[in-house]
Write a protein that binds this DNA or RNA. Structure first.
Length: 812
RNA sequence: GGGCGGAUAGCUCAACAGGGAGAGCGCCUGUCUCACACACAGGAGGCCGCUGGUUCGAGUCCAGCUCUGCCCACCA
């Protein structure tokens, strides 16, 4: 195949993606004797499409996997999907609504069939998009959290926790999403500022004579009031504790109680207590033995012991009624506008309805303790470390986890109830009730929180609870790479589950990558219309360019998407392509063999080796932005601008040593770039003479001490070139240095004297400024006295050098 | 309300352990030089958010302030 002057990634990339996969290079072998290196991909939602966060995270993981594969590791990058309970169910429910039916109408079994049918048709797109990015996941090992084996793992986990006594059922207040029709965990609640009205209502004393005023933002919940509370030290209300007040509208007589959780400074200092619909009130109610009344049902409609005409109204309609009632009875003191944070469902955006409901809970204290220890002792390390401290804060203040969801799509709880109300927890359906022997068993209809199963990802994908070869070979893994928004939801829970079930942490390093924002600084989001489709970026610029650009953007916390970074990658690919054309077109029958004879050859091999060491350090500390920056400058500045230019004459002359050495240098350069830009490097690799193996499985370049001393060998020539370009004045050089200077710098003059014309004065002026700066420093006695000796000495040397250079320009 | 970050060239971002402010893109000038015009060479462009402090010396350390982003949170 011909190498054209313009590198076109389209076609080339797909070809290599197929070849690598078909040839089995992505496969990890559990029976291999090599050391393993394992990353489990954060399982994307099975319904999802690749977004920029996936693309960045995929690139990070693939760079690490490819790097380790080249270094001789048995590298496993585990692929798969999450069933994403709420999202998936919502998509299919929406489809049913369009057809004029509903899940309740068609029933549970038919509904689940519909979900599976939908998934078979539309689900599981992302792995193909990861392929298009060049990601070397072991695709044959794809797992789904709803696979039979995986379900078994989830059941085992539940029963394990149940038998430990950590899973229990309780009537407690939960975050209810009226839209999703399920409870959700605290982590899935977003607090958003909303404008509300604060209603001040007078509650008359039951025995006549006066009233107490409370403030509320939800007048409809007055109907479920069971007490009024004041702070025990609040002198204004000292006399009323123990008396009774009459709840508006419903006329219920309720006590005034004292509780320290009441803030005397807020509102009137008197708080209506509604345990059925407020988390704080729920706690206070429990402690005071108060009833828990519910007046809003699971659909958000008014219900319970309330006036008949209110039943079925929305909360808003009921609130209007209550306020009007208060106004008419002169019990409305005032209403004022009030802005405060209100919980919303992270999935649907609907305002959360706190209500008391019978749910399954998991006590987290015992699970959290060893996870805290693992992070504190840095057996699990977060990068950047600040996320580890945040993770610790969360674990230390951990609260019970509401794990049951009122959905159909997901892992149904392994809980059965018999006629007599006994509860049986078993991995598979029991034949009879363990306590009474009844065979009339009914399974709990609820399913588990999606994240309950995600917690098992690092080992359930390897066959746990069975003792599989995969589990032995690939657990514990090494790296988890993720965005910071799922550290609590997912990362912490994997650590807890891994330690609890296998006795070992699931990974050593957690990489928390940056979030890529839209170019205008807003979040990339479909609803805002600010999203940029990574697949389109790949189609336009190539996967290599996209990978390079994403890594370049990965350094800081949040970064705005910059197409310039992608284009930089595209240019790097093209540059690499063209310098390879130069070397290959002038290779004759040479094969790659490092036989450095000339200065520039020793120098480039040293520069490559030095960069190798730096890139290794960058990768090891997960600093990908600096790694790609170094590779860019190694390619453009060192390899192309200096080495290739200096070597050209001898390549053209047919110098066999020069040709073999140049090819050897190119090989090393391609290897260093492969983890970042796998396609173009593999493509060029294929053109190298006598090359049969693939770069993807080639050895990462070894450290080579032979060249260590030569990394700075061109400093004098480069300084001379700099001076010449600035001022047009040539520094006397001889031997190799003169030859290289002539080869690299002289051809530039062919295009005209633009740069070097008339700049002597400007350069003299620059040097004079530097000289006076250095002189001023050295004239400062306190600087000379107090600064470290080597700093002072370095300043003296700089001064002398500037003076020499000025002399050379005739400016002294 | 609590916590964590960010503010450096027109744009996106670097600057390791305080010691001559950098890169890429964009812009201006020149060159289609037999690897590459997705290139090469040169150039312009910076009160390093503000105010104080520490220091011989501060983009870098400390304090306060302004703006901005994120996380956590049961003040109705």
């Amino acid at each position: 195949m011909e190498m054209e002057p313009l590198y076109r990634p389209q076609g080339v990339e797909e070809r290599w993606q197929r070849a690598w996969e078909d040839e089995g290079h992505y496969r990890a072998d559990p029976s291999s004797s090599k050391p393993s290196y394992v990353i489990a991909v954060p399982p994307p939602n099975v319904t999802g499409r690749l977004h920029m966060g996936h693309a960045l995270n995929g690139t990070i993981q693939d760079a690490l996997i490819r790097w380790h594969r080249m270094r001789g590791f048995n590298a496993l990058w585990q692929p798969g999907y999450d069933h994403a309970g709420i999202s998936t169910q919502a998509i299919v429910e929406k489809e049913l609504r369009r057809e004029g039916t509903s899940r309740l109408e068609i029933g549970r079994d038919a509904f689940l069939e519909r979900v599976w049918a939908w998934l078979h048709q539309y689900g599981g797109e992302i792995m193909s998009q990861f392929r298009r990015l060049g990601c070397s996941l072991d695709y044959e090992r794809e797992r789904f959290t709803m696979d039979d084996g995986y379900v078994r793992a989830v059941m085992r986990f539940f029963v394990h926790l149940y038998e430990r006594g950590w899973i229990y059922r309780d009537n407690r207040i939960v975050n209810w999403c009226p839209d999703c029709r399920t409870s959700i965990s605290d982590l899935e609640v977003e607090h958003i500022d909303v404008d509300d009205a604060l209603t001040y209502a007078r509650y008359p004393f039951a025995d006549g004579g006066g009233h107490v005023t409370i403030a509320t933002v939800r007048p409809a919940t007055i109907l479920a009031d069971v007490a009024v509370a004041v702070h025990p030290a609040d002198e204004r209300y000292a006399g009323i504790v123990g008396r009774e007040v009459v709840v508006p509208v419903v006329g219920r007589r309720v006590p005034v109680i004292a509780d320290e959780r009441v803030d005397p400074a807020f509102g009137t200092g008197a708080l209506k207590i509604t345990p059925g619909h407020d988390p704080t009130d729920f706690e206070i109610g429990r402690d005071h033995g108060l009833p828990e009344l519910t007046v809003i049902d699971l659909e958000g409609r008014m219900t319970g012991e309330i006036p008949e005409l209110l039943v079925g109204l929305t909360e808003e309609e009921a609130s209007d009624y209550v306020v009007e009632w208060l106004r008419e009875t002169k019990q409305l003191e005032k209403r004022e506008s009030y802005r405060h944070a209100v919980g919303h469902c992270a999935k649907s955006g609907t305002r959360i309805q706190p209500l008391v409901s019978l749910q399954w809970w998991c006590s987290m204290d015992e699970l959290a303790r060893p996870a805290i220890e693992a992070i504190e002792s840095e057996r699990v390390r977060f990068h950047p470390a600040v996320h580890g401290r945040v993770a610790l804060d969360w674990l230390r203040g951990i609260r019970p986890w509401n794990i049951s969801r009122q959905l159909w799509w997901g892992h149904q709880l392994p809980i059965w109830y018999c006629r007599d109300g006994h509860v049986v927890c078993a991995e598979t359906e029991p034949a009879a009730c363990a306590e009474c022997g009844s065979t009339d068993l009914e399974r709990d209809p609820d399913v588990l929180d999606t994240w309950f199963s995600s917690a098992l990802w690092p080992f359930a994908t390897l066959g746990w609870p069975d003792e599989t070869p995969e589990l032995r070979a690939f657990y514990p893994g090494h790296v988890d790479s993720t965005a910071r928004d799922i550290i609590f939801l997912w990362v912490n829970r994997m650590i807890m589950a891994g330690i609890e079930l296998l006795g070992e942490i699931p990974f050593r390093d957690v990489i928390v990558h940056s979030i890529i924002l839209a170019p205008d600084g807003r979040r990339m989001s479909k609803s805002l219309g600010t999203g940029i489709d990574p697949v389109e970026v790949i189609d336009e610029h190539g996967a290599d360019a996209t990978r390079y650009g994403l890594l370049k953007m990965s350094s800081t916390q949040d970064v705005r998407f910059s197409v310039g970074a992608i284009e930089e990658g595209r240019k790097l690919a093209n540059k690499l392509w063209n310098v390879s054309r130069l070397l290959l077109a002038n290779a004759g029958d040479a094969v790659a063999d490092a036989r450095p004879r000339e200065l520039e050859e020793r120098w480039i091999l040293a520069r490559i080796d030095a960069t190798r060491a730096e890139v290794e350090a960058d990768f090891a500390s997960y600093d990908f932005a600096h790694a790609v920056d170094r590779l860019y400058h190694l390619t453009f500045d060192d390899f192309c601008d200096w080495f290739a230019e200096a070597a050209k004459p001898r390549l053209y002359d047919g110098d066999a040593d020069a040709r073999a050495t140049a090819l050897a240098a190119l090989e090393r350069l391609l290897a260093l770039l492969h983890p970042v830009m796998p396609h173009v490097t593999e493509e060029i690799w294929g053109f190298l003479p006598a090359r049969e193996s693939r770069l993807i499985v080639a050895a990462w370049p070894e450290a080579d001490a032979r060249f260590a001393a030569d990394a700075d060998a061109l400093v004098r020539v480069q300084e001379a070139a700099e001076r010449f370009r600035r001022s047009g004045v040539a520094t006397p050089l001889d031997g190799d240095e003169k030859r290289i200077f002539d080869a690299v710098v002289r051809p530039e003059r062919a295009g005209g004297p633009a740069g070097a014309n008339g700049n002597v004065e400007a350069e003299q002026e620059r040097l004079r400024r530097e000289i006076s700066r250095a002189e001023a420093m050295l004239a400062n006695e306190r600087f000379v006295e107090r600064a470290p000796a080597e700093v002072v000495e370095a300043e003296r040397e700089k001064l002398e050098r500037f003076r020499r250079e000025l002399d050379a320009l005739g400016g002294g």
